[in-house]
Design a protein around this nucleic acid. Sequence first.
DNA 1: ACGTTATGCAAGCCGATGCTTGCCTGTCAA
DNA 2: TTGACAGGCAAGCATCGGCTTGCATAACGT
Lengths: 101, 101
Amino acid sequence: MHNVLRVGDVFKALADPTRRIILDELTDRNGQTLFEICSRLTTKHHLGSSRQAISQHLDVLEAAGLVETRREGRYKFHYINTAPLEPIIERWLRNPEKDAE
Amino acid sequence: MHNVLRVGDVFKALADPTRRIILDELTDRNGQTLFEICSRLTTKHHLGSSRQAISQHLDVLEAAGLVETRREGRYKFHYINTAPLEPIIERWLRNPEKDAE
DNA sequence: ACGTTATGCAAGCCGATGCTTGCCTGTCAA
DNA sequence: TTGACAGGCAAGCATCGGCTTGCATAACGT
């Protein structure tokens, strides 16, 4: 289950505006379910994305390590994880130890 | 001539591995021309990208504000600009840990 | 002037990606 | 059990993005 977290996955995950708004929502209220996120996106951000679309976005965020999940009965709660964000910026802010890929 | 810099442009620019290596190269040696960057990518990183491909990558980086250029005769020098990187990460790092622990 | 050098522009190809559609699995309450 | 609820899986489609190809432009050296 330990997928290799690549640096590019983090940036690709952040490249989509809907996924960034999802991270905003999880920052505002952590541990939401898929349906909570969907309803919040439609009401607060006027995004007409379907449930399946949001689910796929959450998969991308989880593959990048930016979102972690915990199952409880028929609910699946989503938590933001900012750990992958910290090292990737300092890559160019100070001296490079160049990553592969 | 003031192009509107969108946040998404920065992430989309960073989503490509070749563009990240270009930023690495500019961090290592600032103010390179297009041909210098091309030769460095082939020799040091073994990337077989053509000149036109690198040129288009530099356009994307410049549109995102991550690279600034200065023309001098028939040369065009490219400089890295890390300013757009700083605000976009703190967007999710200022987390007040509402329900953590 | 001539050729070379450094870069720009635009159309086209093709794989990647976001989204939809449809159906399926699992969980809880009445 | 039955039904509603929360979520998952997979195929198809349309657009986007990276790259190539080919030609054009401008600045230098001789």
